[in-house]
Nucleic acid binder design. Structure first.
Lengths: 210, 210
DNA sequence: TGCAACTAACTGACCGGTCAGTTATTAAAT
DNA sequence: ATTTAATAACTGACCGGTCAGTTAGTTGCA
């Protein structure tokens, strides 16, 4: 009987703890986060989480590693699948994916955490940079090169393009999460992604032909 | 004589403390920041800072207020001066200003702090949103409307344009400050601003005329 | 000019609470 | 019976905030 029966070290435990840790870290920030709150949220006592992680910082590291891995493989897939056939569609796809991810608080939680805590943990920052950012940069550069080769993109600096794609997505997320500040008219993520893709592809100035 | 002579409650004290607080807050985060470190950096004992501020949180609030005021007036000036004559130049000016500001760690410190701590202090977040973000939005909307009226901009959603201008600047700053990640080719802020303005104005696709 | 009497500015030891991490103990499952 | 999972109670360091006391500078008075 009893749902309250003590469970016997399920393999799921570490991930349950990490889920709890992520949410507390994001809400409170790493320093202000209390291990006891993480434990409570995972349905455990404080002592129990120390059976699975040697320290609070280890949880942060595990979390970052998880996130970095996921993002890196996403970026790598983008590189390899590459879509040299239709760079415009690929670009729209990337933007849609990013906006969608950033709009879901659960998905954006880890990147948000990394963003706010990275500079206090230089090794984490360096790892993330090498694993995620460099990979993303390469992906964008390849995408841009494909587009230029196909004659449908103007040549642009990859670093700039990276910032022009990621920046608005990042900004969109930070405005929402930090300030609860949302677009007035564009309600759906799809609309935001479309508007962003459109602006990025065609620019602010009207076509002078026609 | 003597530089070491004790200054008699100079008006400068609160600002000196705030300067110190800002740098410590940015380095450590609000929670991890120690008041004693702030005091030391301001050349005072811990007790003395409590002669000027009632609490650590009060320092944060004062700092945010300072920054919000400065940014709000900057945005308001942008609105009123408006530059309806040459919206393109105005846009380039805004972008240049933002990139320059974001590139200087001293100037970007306060916004960075707000960005990382806002969500834990809902009243701070709300204040910043109403004071700074709404104002900026209005400024951008006006700028865009001027451009459209003059026939040199396509009509765009102001919220989207805001994210397309601010986002890359924000991203540029965060990549630099959190990850020490910089553009490979564009070394100078001016170049970054130019590249961003160019991409934003003309888009990624080549002109089809000519 | 010199010398108390006074006050503003500041110091640093201290208190109390909080919290990461540890340990002694208990409960279940085999 | 033994081992594993988990807890609750505990420890010790740390830090925000306080306050009794000190020092630098000022004022009034001779």
């Amino acid at each position: 009987m009893s749902t309250k029966t003590r469970r016997r070290r399920p393999e799921a435990r570490p991930d349950e703890i990490l889920d709890a840790a992520l949410s507390v870290f994001v809400e409170q920030g790493f320093t202000a986060a209390r291990v006891e709150d993480i434990a409570k949220r995972a349905g455990l006592s404080k002592g129990a989480v120390y059976l699975y992680f040697p320290s609070k910082e280890a949880m942060l590291k595990a979390l970052v590693e998880q996130s970095a891995g996921a993002l890196a493989t996403a970026a790598e897939r983008l590189v390899s699948v590459g879509a040299p056939r239709d760079p415009e569609a690929a670009l729209r796809g990337v933007i849609f994916m990013m906006i969608t991810a950033m709009t879901d608080p659960d998905i954006s939680a880890a990147p948000r955490l990394v963003l706010t805590e990275a500079h206090r943990f230089p090794d984490i920052a360096a790892h993330y940079r090498d694993r995620v950012l460099e990979t993303a940069r390469r992906a964008i550069a390849t995408l841009a090169a494909d587009g230029v080769k196909a004659g449908i993109f103007r040549p642009v600096d990859a670093d700039m393009l990276m910032r022009c794609i990621g920046g608005p997505c990042l900004g969109h997320m930070m405005l929402a999460s930090a300030f609860d500040f949302h677009p007035q008219d564009l309600k759906e993520p799809v609309d935001v992604a479309d508007a962003l893709s459109d602006l990025l592809l065609h620019g602010l100035k009207p076509r002078e032909d026609a």
